[in-house]
Design a protein around this nucleic acid. Structure first.
Lengths: 107, 107
DNA sequence: CCCCTTGGTAAGTCGTAGCTTACCGTTCGT
DNA sequence: ACGAACGGTAAGCTACGACTTACCAAGGGG
């Protein structure tokens, strides 16, 4: 089956807390402590999530004094988006067949 | 950051097996048994995954005799893709700031 | 009319992912 | 140079989700 090399990316976005982090970083780059303050979890938990997101290539970090600022990685996000886009296009093709055959509704 | 209404969609794609199912359905629509035959899990497991995917709006099903054919739902896939696209655009903005700062420090 | 195929549901087990507390290294300010 | 702030890691607990087997409902063909 078409190899996902971005498996880690999907796994990373599979967690609601990590999606919240991503959404937060989409607004603006933030340090670890700032993220922890806006989320209902402890700072170590944020660190662990950031490690997953970083390994997946979805975020990048940058040392700034004693703080460490994280931001979204455009390339990583784009990779996942492109995959969905591919699925979407293929789905449209199959959908065309449905229109031809029937206009049934399911439960 | 509140407005994920497609939380279920991300949770659904968070599982590797479900991603395999989605990739399989992207090739062509299939019945439950056909999917089970191409995957290393039992047929009930496939049914359970399909229920999750259907609740998330990523697939639609269609009765065909005694069989039940599943296919991708273009709208569901597009919804997730659009979210990633939004994140991607915001990520580019932040990335632009990085480029500005680093080039200033360059000299 | 029977039964065989197909598929959804129930019950139960097991692995793992996510959280917390505790600890340690590092960097800045004074 | 010392202390405080910031952040990553370790260890351990808990809960949830993915899978299995067993069972049941429904539609179609001989």
């Amino acid at each position: 089956m078409a190899t996902y090399r971005s498996d880690e990316g999907w796994d990373a976005l599979g967690d609601p807390t990590r999606r919240a982090i991503v959404a937060c970083l989409a607004e603006q780059p933030r340090a670890v402590g700032e993220l922890a303050r806006e989320l209902p979890i402890s700072r170590p938990a944020v660190s662990q999530h950031l490690k997953v997101l970083k390994d997946a290539g979805l975020v990048v970090d940058q040392q700034a004094g004693t703080r460490r600022v994280y931001r979204l990685n455009p390339a990583g996000v784009a990779a996942l988006r492109d995959q969905l886009d591919t699925f979407w296009r293929r789905a449209l093709d199959s959908y065309q067949d449905v229109v031809d055959q029937t206009t049934e509704e399911d439960s």
